[in-house]
Computed example of a mutant assay.
Amino acid sequence: MPSVTIKDVARLAGVSPSTVSRVISNHPRISKATAEKVRQAMETLGYHPNMTAKKLVSKSTKTLGLVLPRSAEELFANPFFSEVLRGMLACANQKQYDLLMSSANNPKEEMETVTRMVLGRQVDGMILIKPRKADPVIEKLLALDFPFVVLGRSLEHPDVPAVNNDNIAAAFDATVHLINQGHRRIGFVSGPPELVVSGDRLAGYQKALSQAKLPLRDEWVIASDILPKNGFHAVSMVMNAPDRPTAFVVSDDVVAFGMIRELVGAGYQIPEDVSVVGFNNIVLSELSNPPMTTVDIGIYHLGYQTARHLIRILQGEKVPEPNVTVPHRLVIRQSVRFLPHVDDSL
């Protein structure tokens, strides 16, 4: 059976082939009535535009590039990535963009993949997730003058387009909640130290302790990668000390689950012996035992707004501010114990 052509659609709709092309390209001068007539003809005939040819003519791929700075194993282990992707895909689909996604096992692979996407003209713009301090990928994209948006923020280039939470304020709020519940010995489990977000959340924790005139104990600040297995062991040394924290702020819910598993296995009870506040408010945090207090950072909205921000830039829209802030909120559940008096015997 011969394939349906643009001329067949034009003949059925009673318009010229050029009008059909304009409808496919969403040309603003085509009336709604004509556009509807053409689309109805396309549906009747089962016609699908040759998008590859269209992209070659327009020199636009209608594709956003995304390189996740994690291996496939890590991506599936942490629901943060699937939820942020869900937001990006929802926006991209609405705006008729595709998402070209890849993962990288290390910074070198990430740079190679980004370079291949950009110089190979596979994408119109790039999305970077959780940038590092002095991130070479950001430097590369700036040097190439290639459109990109950061999910997070650039430490060295604060004016690059970005979508982020106020992570300093978010960690501050989490720590203050523990202080308000009577805790004075509070530990902090950070993400990888090379990530900007890890430094921001550590700063918020430190700010809360300073404001409450509580000492900052370096041995109570633990760097952990964003994987459950690291959460299993991150606090063992701290908890074996005679002077140990009564509570922890943990930079990721998944790491917090691992930490809780380690604590329970060692004979501690949550929150009777140790209180825990996590980050991200993934679905499992509400289903854990006990349900975990956590900071909701709006993961889906972070993904959606990042894709939206990049598409607006690509379409030449006037963007009022280069940086978009997605609000956070503290979700209080049962993983934090109230201490009516500071009990140094714990």
Score class of each variant (00 low, 15 high):
S3D: 03
V4Y: 10
R11I: 07
S16Y: 05
S18Y: 01
S18K: 00
S21I: 08
I24L: 03
I30S: 04
S31N: 02
T34V: 10
E36A: 14
R39H: 06
Q40V: 08
A41N: 07
A53K: 11
K55V: 04
G65I: 00
G65P: 10
L66I: 06
L66D: 05
F76H: 10
F81N: 00
S103R: 00
N105S: 15
E109D: 11
E109R: 09
E109Q: 12
V123S: 00
V123L: 05
L142F: 00
F148V: 01
E156D: 14
V160M: 01
A162G: 13
V163I: 11
A169Y: 09
A170N: 05
A174L: 07
F188N: 12
S190Y: 06
G191H: 04
V196E: 12
R201N: 01
Q206M: 13
A208N: 13
L209R: 01
S210M: 06
K213D: 15
L214Q: 00
L214C: 01
P215K: 08
I222Q: 11
D225P: 09
I226M: 09
P228E: 06
N230S: 08
G231L: 07
G231Y: 06
H233C: 02
A234M: 06
S236H: 12
M237H: 15
M239F: 12
R244Y: 12
R244A: 12
R244W: 13
S251T: 12
V254W: 03
V254N: 06
F257P: 04
F257Q: 09
G258C: 07
R261S: 05
Y268P: 01
Y268S: 07
N280P: 04
I282N: 12
V283E: 14
S285P: 08
I297R: 02
Y300A: 10
H301Q: 06
Y304H: 02
Q305K: 04
H309C: 06
R312W: 07
K318M: 11
E321R: 15
N323A: 14
V324L: 14
P327T: 11
H328A: 12
V331P: 11
